[in-house]
Design a protein around this nucleic acid. Sequence first.
DNA 1: GCCAACGTTGGC
DNA 2: GCCAACGTTGGC
Length: 137
Amino acid sequence: MAKWLFKSEPDVFSWDDLVSRGKDGEEWDGVRNYQARNNMREMKEGELGFFYHSRSGLEIVGIVEICNEAHPDSTTEDERWECVDVRAVKPLPRAITMKEIKAEPRLKDMVLANNSRLSVQPVSEAEWDVILEISGA
DNA sequence: GCCAACGTTGGC
DNA sequence: GCCAACGTTGGC
């Protein structure tokens, strides 16, 4: 199963906000970038992703699950934009910072470290495992 | 708060 | 179809 990573500014929508939505999760709306949208179209229900706090957080804080595959974004009439629904699964035992990711040779090719602008991105199985490992999971 | 990097827009 | 101008993102 593919792995993913979702970025959000904690001041706008944080991990705690997602946790508060419970098992129904939240629509990952507002994405207006084709690459990010295409990634969401690839997602299958039940796949997992990391939740990353950008800008004022700069760390991976938790694991989310895709609970609804791509559907039209309810926040726009523009039918180009689609989104998935995600729900919080569990927090990482320890948040992994951008600094740690950049310092870890095995994560040097991670999209997060190389294309800071992409808000929804794929994570390789190897990268996924390294993050869990250094987090102590 | 700054500004580099990136994506998008629109005039030609 | 090119590319300059513009707006936004996000690390620092």
